[in-house]
Write a protein that binds this DNA or RNA. Structure first.
Lengths: 211, 211
DNA sequence: ACTCACAAAATTGTATGCAATTATACCGTT
DNA sequence: AACGGTATAATTGCATACAATTTTGTGAGT
């Protein structure tokens, strides 16, 4: 068994990122290295490396006396959806024209699992499958620049998506839309995959706004 | 006089980033912390922090035994222009509808300086003004998510842009396009700014491909 | 009670030390 | 000459040490 040890710096990065994106730390909160070091029980070295990465992602900003949490504002949320509207359709189109059998099978499994969790009204797992659906499509495209942009964007709105898929009506429509996108991709219809995907993002945004 | 001392970690980041983007380090090259430490004359601590940031930008990748340089491939270049085509017009439109007098003045100055350097056939300064033109527009928009995406993308293609503006014919057309975009923004015509900007990116791409 | 000065604490930035792992080189054996 | 094994190098990951700076607290003097 491959025992891949995850570095402390990586764990710290994911921990703090999660706390920012889930709202544990709010916009404007100040985080100091020593405080984080004590709280997480590791030395400042991995803390600092994690903070530099979070800074690069614009989730925090250096102030000279601790870092300040930036997080995702309402305006950011709107722009994130707008940008996804512009880019995600292109990726779906690209994937439809590739036809990677193995990844398509994974995508179908993901949609079917999501249907199951919708029927069980399990928002956490619905959101996980939603994550996986979009991430699989990004990866299937093999287009790194798109992946580097879309993965973080998708990641940054977890909190809002969780709220959105907690509404059964939206969860049902969302998974139905995923299924339609999947079928368009399977049939190799790039334009249809593009259109459905763009519509899906717009619907998700509308649902998020109302949430 | 404000004496802002730049940390060694920041200097190292910029140094290595520049070396990757300008081609000093090629795709596949292996960089080790100790080697960089000796070469740049600083300890491994700031080196490591810089490497973690470069990793976050996908310019390098961890291998367990030194980091490997990723850099920008031809496919990446194509997607970068495609994404800019999708996003930069939106930003220009947004800026045209804002009318920040002071930044508009800076933008005009930048275009006029660029005209001057074009007449002097000075590619380095032409490129600098090109940088400034696009960065000013991003900043004028005040839309952070767009800025976070477009600034790095623009930054990553410096090498190619340098080649492009070294051709006098393209340099002249480029600055003329900048001027037209500026005037559309000044007149508050968002749609025109959008259209001209999209066309500008496409022209830049065509010129880059041929270079 | 207020203020100023100075001491103490907190905080960052950088270097160094050290353990664990992995690659490399060298030397002996066949 | 080829092969193996062991010692040595190199390398990462993490902790700690330390200087420089800034903030905070405290206490004396009025």
């Amino acid at each position: 068994m491959e025992h891949k040890t995850v570095s402390l710096a990586d764990q710290v990065f994911e921990h703090i990122e999660k706390d920012i994106l889930s709202g544990v730390y709010a916009r404007g909160d100040i985080l100091t290295e020593s405080h984080l070091s004590a709280e997480l029980g590791v030395s400042r070295t991995p803390i600092r490396e994690a903070l530099r990465r979070l800074e690069q992602e614009h989730l925090i900003e250096e102030t000279g006396k601790g870092v300040v949490v930036i997080g995702i504002s309402e305006d950011d949320l709107e722009d994130i959806f707008l940008i996804r509207t512009q880019l995600e359709g292109l990726v779906c189109k690209s994937v439809a024209e590739k036809q990677d059998k193995e990844l398509l099978e994974q995508l179908r499994e993901t949609v079917e699992l999501q249907e199951y969790y919708v029927s069980k009204k399990d928002p956490d797992h619905i959101k996980l499958m939603d994550n996986k659906f979009h991430e699989l499509i990004y990866k299937m495209s093999g287009r790194n620049v798109f992946i580097e942009i879309l993965l973080p964007l998708h990641n940054k709105i977890q909190k809002y998506r969780k709220a959105s898929v907690s509404k059964p009506s939206r969860a049902e429509r969302s998974v139905a839309e995923h299924k339609a996108i999947l079928e368009a991709i399977e049939s190799g219809d790039g334009q249809k995959a593009f259109d459905l995907s763009v519509k899906h993002i717009k619907n998700a945004y509308n649902s998020t706004k109302k949430a």
